[in-house]
């Protein structure tokens, strides 16, 4: 295995998902998440597919967990904004360790006002629901944060959200 300093953030995430038996990857695509999504599709360990909406992706992962399969939902910031009702009434109410990974738009060089505004709702929603969340900014911390967050979510039967900062991924900039 390559040293953490030479590995990509998406390579690290895929390794940690494998190690924690997180096999199901549902997503609504995002440009920043592209290498992660492609990596999940390329490895038969994962069952990876897109859904029409983030709520659907969350419902599938919750159903799969109740039937014994771990999964994660990938989305961007604006997609997360569609989820509060599902988080409150399904994942939180039923105590399901719904894992979410959000590529953060709306900060550190955002060019779209709508994205900048919706981004401000994300952490307040997570805090209001008491959902554990961590923002990953550094490559050398990525493995630890992703691994420990998954373990804690499963161990405490609570949903959790990992936010991928542009500091980690480079984000999306206006061309």
């Amino acid at each position: 295995m390559a040293d953490a300093t030479t590995r990509s953030w998406h390579g690290i995430v895929l390794d940690v998902l494998r190690r924690n038996e997180v096999r199901l990857v549902t997503y609504v695509p995002d440009n920043v998440l592209r290498p992660l999504i492609e990596g999940a599709h390329a490895d038969p360990f994962f069952t990876a597919f897109p859904t029409a909406r983030e709520e659907e992706a969350a419902g599938i992962v919750c159903g799969a967990w109740m039937a014994g399969m771990r999964g994660i939902v990938l989305m961007q910031t604006s997609g997360f904004a569609t989820l509060p009702n599902v988080l409150a009434s399904l994942a939180c109410a039923c105590q399901i360790p719904l894992l979410m990974m959000v590529s953060e738009r709306g900060t550190l060089g955002e060019f779209n006002l709508g994205q900048a505004l919706v981004c401000r709702t994300m952490r307040p929603v997570l805090d209001a629901l008491g959902v554990e969340h961590h923002t990953i900014t550094r490559l050398d911390e990525a493995e630890f944060i992703v691994d420990r967050t998954i373990r804690q979510a499963v161990g405490t039967q609570a949903p959790a959200c990992l936010i991928l900062s542009p500091l980690l991924t480079g984000g999306k900039v206006a061309s």
Partner: peptide, 22 residues
């Protein structure tokens, strides 16, 4: 049986997740 007390619209996605897992 699983009884949905919220998350309107998600019976099919939840069932799809169960179907994929088992």
């Amino acid at each position: 049986n699983f009884y949905m007390l919220g998350s309107m619209g998600l019976a099919v996605p939840i069932a799809l997740g169960v179907a994929i897992a088992q």
